[in-house]
């Protein structure tokens, strides 16, 4: 407020001189702002403060209009949340993608990699589609982005099951390559360890109408799996399936 002292400095100007902004400002300040405060008014304000303090007003929630932190700070906070949201979403997507790669890769036997392509379009095509969709969803809020992209075309659990089943079918017989959690879930979903083979056959049947490239290899594996005693009951069941891959 140093402008106030500049009032006297105007003496040298001619009468037609248009006032500078700073001169007008100084004038306004000098005219409208008085230093010092009315003691009584201050006492009332402080009394109000004391009452509010006694009423526990300190814990009151900050509303949007009470937040006067510098813009950058608020912006940073928001962008940090957004960044975290994006990060979370990409981790989720990454997980899905890795799972898809794992499935595709594991079913790609060394012998018949190229033939496998058409058999798995849902997995490979849905994964890349998600990242494009995610950022727009992310723009408005950072919440929920973690779960949203995980269910694109069909429910994630179904895909999980399918993936686990594939892994199971591919891995079984060569030792159980599916990790423990996935295996336990698969057992839960199937309703028992002995029903897993049957369950998986049912799960994979509609999703893979052309299991040809897999069959020779897969059935051989499954055969050995059955031989391990995972249940004989399936043998009655699976032949009924037109596409039954395990038998």
């Amino acid at each position: 407020m140093g402008e106030r002292q500049s009032e006297g400095g105007l003496a040298g100007h001619g009468p037609r001189h248009a006032l500078l902004d700073s001169e007008v400002e100084a004038l306004i300040v000098a005219s409208l702002v008085r230093d010092g405060v009315d003691a009584e008014a201050e006492r009332r304000a402080v009394a109000a403060f004391r009452i509010a303090r006694g009423a526990g007003a300190r814990t009151a929630r900050t509303r949007r209009r009470d937040d006067w932190r510098p813009r950058e700070g608020r912006h940073l906070g928001r962008s940090l949340r957004t960044t975290l949201g994006v990060l979370l979403a990409s981790l989720t997507l990454g997980g899905v993608a890795v799972a898809a790669i794992g499935v595709a890769g594991s079913s790609d036997g060394p012998d018949h990699g190229p033939h496998d392509g058409p058999g798995h379009p849902p997995v490979s095509s849905s994964a890349p589609r998600d990242p494009a969709r995610t950022p727009s969803r992310d723009g408005d809020a950072g919440h929920g982005t973690g779960s949203a992209p995980a269910r694109p075309d069909r429910p994630a659990p179904a895909r999980d099951t399918e993936a686990h089943c594939r892994a199971y079918q591919q891995a079984d017989g060569r030792g159980r390559a599916t990790d423990a959690t996935a295996w336990r879930r698969l057992v839960d979903a199937a309703g028992g360890e002995s029903k897993v083979t049957e369950y998986c056959a049912r799960q994979l049947a509609p999703a893979a109408p052309e299991p040809k490239p897999n069959r020779s290899h897969g059935s051989a594996d499954m055969g050995s799996a059955e031989g391990n005693g995972t249940g004989t009951g399936h043998d009655k069941d699976t032949p009924a399936r037109p596409n039954g891959r395990s038998r």
Binding site: A41, R44, I51, T59, A60, T62, D66, W68, R69, P70
Partner: peptide, 29 residues
């Protein structure tokens, strides 16, 4: 102005706990 300022300060005192910001922010608030 004095009366209105008194009213304003009652509210300022009451909502002070909600305020977030620095000195300049407090002037704006």
């Amino acid at each position: 102005a004095e009366d209105v300022a008194s009213d304003a300060w009652l509210e300022i005192a009451r909502d002070l706990g909600r305020f977030k910001g620095d000195g300049a922010g407090f002037r704006g608030w």
